[in-house]
Amino acid sequence: MNGPAASGGLPRFMSRCRMLRSRRGSVAVEWALGALVFAALLLTGMELGRYYFMAQSLQNLVGEVIRAAVVNTALGDGAEDCTTPKSTYAPLTPMINTADLLICVQRTRVGGTVTINVRGTIPYAFLTPILNGTSRTLSETSQYSYPGS
């Protein structure tokens, strides 16, 4: 027999075409790509949750310091006090790194009104690779006024 069939050229060519049309392994590749996108969305969601948790923790800490300043009249009396609140009230929020925390209290008296101002700031850096390099400064300010002597 002479020709392509005798030399095995046609059947070999057809087997290559069959191999190129084969769908074996395509499910694994599609699943891997889908899992990568899902993992990226999951990590980003967790990171945003951590961000909002830290913002809420800072807000709660500022609220606790305001409450303490109302009771403790020596806290922030006159000049701005940035040391006492940090050492005393920062352990109430374990997720906040106290080394980077700045929380200040200032009490002023004008006429018969006492005003307490509390300011808290902390730097925040995202950890996920998608948001890597993005950093923000979380800040919270609160003011409370009441009649006093």
Rank of each mutant, 00 (worst) to 15 (best):
F38G: 14
G133H: 09
L101V: 06
R119M: 07
T83I: 13
N97H: 04
A6T: 08
R16S: 01
E47K: 01
I116D: 00
A125C: 04
A79M: 13
R24W: 02
A5E: 04
G34M: 14
P129I: 10
I96T: 07
R12H: 02
A32L: 10
E80L: 08
T121A: 07
I96E: 03
M54C: 13
I116H: 02
N60E: 04
S149A: 12
I122P: 00
T137W: 09
A28D: 04
G9L: 15
T134A: 13
P129G: 06
L61F: 02
I122D: 02
M95V: 15
T137H: 11
S145W: 10
A35Q: 03
E80G: 04
S26L: 14
N72E: 15
G8D: 03
L131H: 05
G120L: 06
R67W: 10
G78A: 07
P11D: 05
L127H: 12
T83S: 13
L41C: 12
T128V: 05
R109H: 14
V29C: 00
S87T: 06
T93E: 11
G8T: 05
L43Q: 09
A35S: 07
E140S: 06
D81S: 03
G111E: 03
P11H: 07
M1H: 11
R119S: 09
G49W: 06
G120E: 05
G34N: 14
T137L: 13
V105G: 01
T98I: 13
N72M: 15
G45K: 03
L41V: 13
M19A: 13
E30H: 12
G63N: 09
V105T: 03
E47D: 04
A28Y: 05
A55C: 03
G34L: 15
K86V: 12
V105D: 03
T113F: 09
R18K: 07
M14R: 02
Q143G: 03
L36Q: 15
A90S: 12
V62W: 00
A69H: 04
R12P: 00
Q143H: 10
L10G: 01
E47W: 03
E140R: 11
A28W: 11
F53V: 11
V110F: 12
T113D: 15
A90T: 06
G111R: 08
Y144R: 03
T73G: 11
G148D: 09
R18F: 00
N60F: 04
L42W: 11
I130H: 01
R12L: 05
T115K: 06
A125G: 06
S145M: 08
M14P: 01
R50T: 06
S149L: 09
F126H: 05
R21W: 00
T88V: 13
T141I: 01
S26F: 15
G148H: 12
N97R: 07
L127N: 15
G133F: 11
L10R: 04
E140F: 03
A35D: 00
T73Q: 14
V70H: 09
A55T: 01
Y52C: 02
A39L: 13
C17T: 03
P85M: 07
S15Y: 00
E30L: 08
S145N: 10
A39H: 08
D77I: 08
E140V: 11
L41D: 07
